[in-house]
């Protein structure tokens, strides 16, 4: 894989990803994620739903030629809190990407959802839709996994093992998304529990992460 794409997948990319837990913080608050096995279970479900949808949108944005992707992202994100978080992360990523990979396509891009920005940046950086899908699917679980270390004080080595065990599923999810987009269909897998967690989190008085 191209080094530019590794930079994009890196959690050290200054795009504000560390401020979001992908619904993990409210799941911890609700007591459904407590330890490594419940974290693995949460990430598996998140990958198959929100991860698949993000991977599809990123692949479509990378392939280009499909206007209205932000409306498609909106229609796949019923939770207002999640739409807000996705737009905020899109804005932060666009800012970092414009600095790192100056390109007219990034200057033209207005306020967009995170996967749409990600796919566009991957295209500008010379990547393929399948690679855009892979970075999106990977980010869908690595962000919440880092949040779990901070929130639950889990052993980072144990969390890394959880992620390593998920690697095959991450690849499969990215492949499913890219294949679906090639066939002209954007995935729309929903996660009702994540939707509810996102809204409960927005109401919460005390929180470490924005989402």
């Amino acid at each position: 894989m191209d080094a530019a794409l590794l930079l994009l997948a890196d959690s050290r990319l200054p795009a504000g990803g560390h401020a979001h837990s992908g619904g993990l913080e409210p799941a911890v608050t609700a007591g459904v994620v407590r330890d490594l096995p419940t974290l693995a279970d949460f990430l598996r479900g998140r990958l198959a739903t929100a991860g698949l949808v993000a991977a599809g949108l990123a692949a479509a944005a990378c392939a280009g030629g499909r206007p209205g992707l932000d409306a498609e992202a909106d229609a796949r994100t019923p939770s207002p809190a999640q739409r807000h978080a996705s737009l905020a992360q899109g804005r932060a990523l666009l800012r970092a990407a414009r600095a790192a990979w100056p390109h007219p396509a990034l200057e033209e891009l207005g306020p967009s959802h995170h996967p749409v920005v990600l796919g566009t940046v991957v295209r500008v950086a010379g990547g393929t839709p399948a690679q855009a899908a892979a970075i999106a699917a990977y980010g869908a679980v690595t962000g919440p996994a880092s949040a779990a270390v901070r929130l639950l004080g889990l052993d980072p080595l144990g969390v890394q093992r959880v992620l390593a065990d998920l690697a095959g599923r991450i690849d499969a999810t990215a492949a499913e998304a890219a294949e679906s987009v090639r066939a002209g269909v954007l995935p729309a897998a929903s996660a009702p529990a994540l939707d509810l967690f996102a809204e409960l989190h927005r109401q919460a008085d005390l929180r470490l992460f924005e989402s």
């Binding site: 279970d41 949460f42 598996r44 479900g45 198959a48 739903t49 996660a191 529990a193 994540l194």
Partner: peptide, 11 residues
């Protein structure tokens, strides 16, 4: 499906 029992989906 097999992922639906995840706490992120239907719990």
């Amino acid at each position: 499906d097999e992922n639906a029992t995840s706490a992120a989906v239907l719990g």
